[in-house]
Amino acid sequence: MKFKKYLLLGLITVLWSCKSASNQNVSKNDNMPKNVILLIGDGTGLSQISSAFFFKETAPNYGRFNHIGLIKTSSAIEDVTDSAASGTAFASGIKTYNGAIGVAIDSTEVATIVEIATPKNIKTGVVSTSSIVHATPASFYAHALRRGYYEEIASDMVASDIDFFSGGGTKFYTKRKDGRDLLAELKAKNFIVDTTKLGDFNSIKSYSKVGYLFGPEHMPPTAKGRGDYLPKATQLGIDFLKKDNSNFFLMVEGSQVDWGGHANDADYLISELIDFDDAIGKALDFAERDGNTLVVVTADHETGGFTLASKTKKTEDGREYSDYSETEGIFSTGGHSATLIPVFAYGPGAEEFSGIYENTEIFHKIMKLTKWKNSK
């Protein structure tokens, strides 16, 4: 009788343990991200990403992802998108015309992630290696009928509730046709804006809002003076936005991979891609420690029709041949292409980003996972 009693007790214990383990798994799988870091490598297609695996001296951070998908990038009207239409797709979840910043195809304003998140007490920030009013970063906080309305976009930055920004573009804030001093206006909104160098976290942790503007317009290439600005700005943005245990959204753009593609300059492109990969590493390192952060890495479009081909060499008698033991970057266009673009995801909900879908789904998947759009 005692044996049956102990057997029953043991069976109950095993069943309870299985139920507890099952509940833990459900809880873990249902865990929604508290923070989102979206990294956009402007102009970065699969061949650009592949270059990191051939030319980076350390293991590429792209290789740390298990969940990978593909997005279709065409804008509402054009097969080949530009950064403005694609940025608006990411930031607001709608297809629009090339050149549009935060507006629909009928020119009406659409809500951006920054505008959706900040009322929920989510801290927000944007980092770029271009001017901070350039198409991709602008799409997350501004509304303009044309991407070239830089002064209007800078004004939208002041009017927004963004908490952290870093990039180029001082002239759009101080040397304006309307005579406004937007740096003074930012200061009036409790911003500390530095136009000299990136600070460290200890120097800014007591501030409520921080901005960095370097140079009149765009920042120089990483190989010509910018150095490791992008990974450092990414880390600083994370540290600042998460202080006081805040939840946050951060967009980081590696702008100049695109410019290397437009210039058909493989060395320029590859050095910018490697720099962007270093920024990805900062985001992943934080996400691994934190456990509540979703990291999504993608691109707005591919630029240059770039590919890694076997290196062309010549024999002693002048005949050309392909040396399959070496690669080199070659291009098919000086513009954008319509190729599908990879998406990499890590953290809570990362599996949602597998498959093939429209670029607007990046926004909708983030909203679904965080519930920022529906929560009060």
Rank of each mutant, 00 (worst) to 15 (best):
L241S: 01
S75Q: 08
A142Y: 02
G304F: 05
S92C: 14
D181S: 08
G261E: 11
S375E: 13
S255F: 05
Y207T: 06
Y212M: 02
T58M: 07
G335P: 07
D163V: 05
I274E: 04
D300H: 11
G291T: 14
L369S: 06
Y229P: 00
F164T: 02
S255Y: 08
G260I: 08
E351H: 07
T195A: 03
H301R: 10
D82Q: 04
D163K: 02
K120V: 03
F331T: 07
A111P: 02
M367I: 10
M1C: 09
L273K: 13
S322M: 13
E151A: 08
K187Q: 15
T196W: 03
Y149D: 14
Q48S: 11
Y346F: 14
V126R: 00
S131Q: 07
Y97S: 05
A135C: 01
F286W: 15
V158H: 04
P33R: 08
A76D: 10
G211E: 03
L198V: 02
F344P: 00
T307F: 02
W16C: 14
D267H: 13
A299F: 04
T327L: 15
G125V: 04
F248C: 04
P348S: 10
K313G: 06
L250Q: 03
A117W: 00
A287T: 08
N98K: 13
E78W: 05
F201G: 00
S155I: 04
P216A: 12
A223C: 00
P119W: 04
G43W: 10
K314A: 12
E358N: 15
E302G: 12
K177L: 12
A188V: 04
V110P: 05
K19Q: 12
V343H: 06
D300P: 12
S131N: 12
R146I: 07
F90E: 01
G335N: 07
G43A: 10
R146T: 11
A138I: 01
E152A: 12
V14C: 14
A287N: 05
L38D: 07
